[in-house]
Each structure stands twice: as structure tokens, then as C-alpha cells.
Amino acid sequence: MVQAHVQLMWPRAALAGLLLLLGACSVQPVAPPEPLPPVEVAEDSPAASLLALADSARARNDFSAAGRYLERALSVSRSGEATVLYRELAELRLAENEPRAAEGLALRALREAPDHPLWQADLWDLVAEARDRQGNEAGRDAAQDNAERLRKEP
């Protein structure tokens, strides 16, 4: 994947990490966010333009449109892009206060994730957040443990 695509996703991903830290008061403190790894949606991918539209829709709180854009992106996505799109869908469900749906989608993103510990750790953080919002403390702790272990991997 070309490096240019990183521009598209980094600010949002970093913001997501920050939100996780600031917003999840009941989540136990986690290690400071490290820069997220490159996300595999290339600039010339049809999914990238839909992702950008989903961002705009979400910024104006139009979750319905954002969800539709992301699902369309999923249907035209190339190999390796699904993990990003599921992650975005999971974040959207969290924003819609549907943590159970968010957890499933974050786990789905993990299933599609590349073998990249930091990316996976970020997704486990999302799982932890979703589980915490459901009151599943044991599940949250397990997800956080996974995230921490992955961050320590060389």
C-alpha cells in the first residue's frame, strides 16, 4: 500500500485513541497511545472516497448517512481494507450508543486485521471500550490485557 493513504486515516485514528482515553472515565488507564500503524485504504481506492464522505456525515451527526457510506465502502472494498471499515463501523456504533454492536464489529475488524501489533492493540482498545459500556468488566480487562501485550511486542 502506498504511504500517501496514511494521511487519510491518521488524524482520525489518533483522535479516536484520544477519545478513548478522555471519554472512557471508567476504563482503567492504559498506556499512552502510540502512533497508529498505516491503515490499508489506498487513496485511489473507491472505499477511500466513501470513507471521507462517512467522516463528513459523522461530523454533522448524520449517523445514518455515515453508516450507509461505510457499508457501501465495504461492498466495494479491496483486499485488506475491510479491517479499517469494520473499525469505523464499530466507532460509529459506539457513537450511536450501541456498544454491543460495536464490540462485534471491532472483533470483526480484528479478524481482518493485518499482523500488526499496534493496529491490533488499537482494535482491542475499542473492544475494551465497547465491553466497558456494556458493564462487562472482566471482558474489558481481558481486552485491555490483549492491547497491552500487543503493544509490548517487538
Binding site: 445514518s64 453508516g67 457499508e71 465495504l74 463501523l89 456504533r93 462485534g104 472483533l107
Partner: peptide
């Protein structure tokens, strides 16, 4: 105008 959505979901 949207009335209802049937969003994608996933459950492990």
C-alpha cells in the same frame, strides 16, 4: 427521508 435502517452487525 430515512425511516429505518437495517445496519450491518457482527457477533462472534
Amino acid at each position: 427521508e430515512p425511516v429505518a435502517r437495517y445496519p450491518v452487525s457482527a457477533e462472534a
